[in-house]
Design a protein around this nucleic acid. Structure first.
Lengths: 203, 203
DNA sequence: TTGCGGACTGAACGGTCGTTCACCTAGTGG
DNA sequence: CCACTAGGTGAACGACCGTTCAGTCCGCAA
């Protein structure tokens, strides 16, 4: 095979599993986890429902497989940006905002899933993903309190969640019909400026 | 009876129906529409599942009954604030922000429902509620383009959605455990300032 | 007392869904 | 050639869910 299962790097090959997962994510995002049946997913990739059990242990496992890498990628990307600007919280914040906006615009379906359906997971997986989320939030909190010393950790956390709500609003105008043609770069700029404005403190 | 069904004013009496609806909304918000069964709802209000059909035509009707008044109240409140400041878009925006933040902080469960489960409605009801939402968005868009003439309608719409995402982040730190004790007024102030900062344009 | 309507129960029905199982097929390395 | 494996099928099962229905209970007006 092209890669042994023991290497920990990201598998470069696009397997059938990945293809199924991408379709499933899109369906979960638009119709909700409980609104999509295994037969539905199977039909969308031209197989029967039970065939999916050759790739995933079950329906919940599909959701976990979709959500965990997302949280992991966000956390890794966030950590990297913060560590790259150890003495400049302002630059770190700008890097975080650019990173997150780019991510949200590139993966609106996954973002929607992450926001909507996390609670449909069994306890164990949910706790694991929530921990990754929490660590990502803490990266933001660290930068925010460094930048605005008047903020308590709690206040910074509220602001971080608020910023996520802002940047994660991408699914609302991305998944709609092709009516709007504000360029993607234009939208990205709007969101970056809005987020920085929201976090800047009283003007 | 105390009020004929023909009067359009809000019914002042708190009926059993209202009580059931409030419980159902909370359950929908935390476990998802499909994650709650009629028997679950019945059990939470100490009746059997089928008993609910004496108050609602069905499960979907409960969701509609929960969502429509919310959209209506938001639209009414938004209209009122805009009309109260016909020649001062800056004041109008401040009023809109204060109104929406207050609403979101007072009704986190309903907000979560509105954000998460609207797509689970049958076409007709969904279209109706979406129309109310759209009109509410337009109130914001009007104020925004009046305040910042460089914005196109489309850009203003993106910013409006972004602002909603920010202000509607309330469920994320409200429904959690009793760990945080940032006063409600403190959180409200943070959210108001963040929203205004997000919409103010480049600093 | 009688009649009536609102609220509720318990049983039941029809449908859907996640999952399992036995079986089939094509490709592949020894 | 053979054994093995990955991937897939179709039928079936058990559970759950939304909904219906016949019947019960109770407060209240006539």
């Amino acid at each position: 095979m092209s890669s042994t299962p023991t290497d920990t790097g990201a598998a470069p090959v696009r397997t059938r599993r990945d293809e199924i997962l991408e379709v499933a994510v899109r369906m979960f995002a638009t119709r909700g986890y409980h609104g999509v049946s295994m037969d539905d997913i199977g039909r969308a990739v031209d197989v029967t429902g039970p065939a999916l059990y050759h790739h995933f242990k079950g329906k919940e496992a599909m959701l976990v497989a979709a959500l965990r890498p997302v949280s992991q990628r966000l956390l890794n990307g966030g950590r990297k940006r913060v560590e790259a600007n150890p003495d400049d919280p302002r630059a770190a914040l700008h890097a975080l905002v650019e990173f997150h906006v780019e991510f949200a615009l590139s993966n609106p379906a996954v973002i929607a899933l992450h926001v909507h359906e996390l609670d449909r997971l069994p306890d164990e997986s949910r706790r694991e993903i929530r921990m990754l989320q929490r660590q990502y939030v803490e990266e933001w909190v660290t930068v925010l309190v460094a930048l605005r010393s008047e903020l308590s950790q709690e206040q910074a956390r509220v602001l971080a969640h608020a910023a996520f709500g802002l940047m994660n609003s991408t699914p609302y105008f991305t998944q709609r019909g092709a009516g709007d043609h504000s360029g993607r770069a234009d939208i990205a700029r709007l969101l970056r400026e809005a987020t920085l404005g929201a976090l800047a403190g009283t003007t």
